[in-house]
């Protein structure tokens, strides 16, 4: 839930934007990070672990734990806690390894 009136800081949320998670539209505010805006819309599961396929989401909000990775505007493994929302942003969960660019498949 967005905090419309903060007990100490007052009214701060300005400039609503629309972001898309799995193609569904959600309301966010310009100053928010992607992970925070998704949490405001009750979206907590942002991906899954590779080995045991466990749900993953925001943990540290400081860009250190990398638990909030998601695909943002086509870019894989974006730290959504360190990225601010932009209008029309398209976000998909981080459920599988990205396609690695290059001519061969690599190893």
């Amino acid at each position: 839930m967005h905090i419309k009136h903060h007990p100490v800081l007052g009214k701060k949320l300005q400039n609503p934007v629309t972001i898309y998670f799995n193609d569904q539209p959600y309301t966010a505010y310009e100053q928010q990070t992607v992970a925070a805006a998704l949490m405001a819309n009750d979206i907590k599961r942002l991906g899954s672990s590779r080995n045991l396929v466990q749900p993953r989401g925001l943990f540290c909000t400081r860009g250190r734990c990398c638990s909030c990775y998601a695909t943002v505007n086509g870019e894989n493994h974006v730290r959504t806690c360190m990225t601010r929302v932009e209008d029309g942003m398209k976000i998909y969960p981080n459920d599988e390894d990205p396609e690695v660019r290059g001519e061969s498949c690599g190893d």
Partner: peptide, 17 residues
């Protein structure tokens, strides 16, 4: 499950409950 600092960041910086 968040760090306590993360919870504080969400409410006071991002204005998210």
């Amino acid at each position: 499950v968040l760090t306590i600092g993360a919870a504080q960041t969400l409410i006071n910086r991002d204005f998210v409950k």
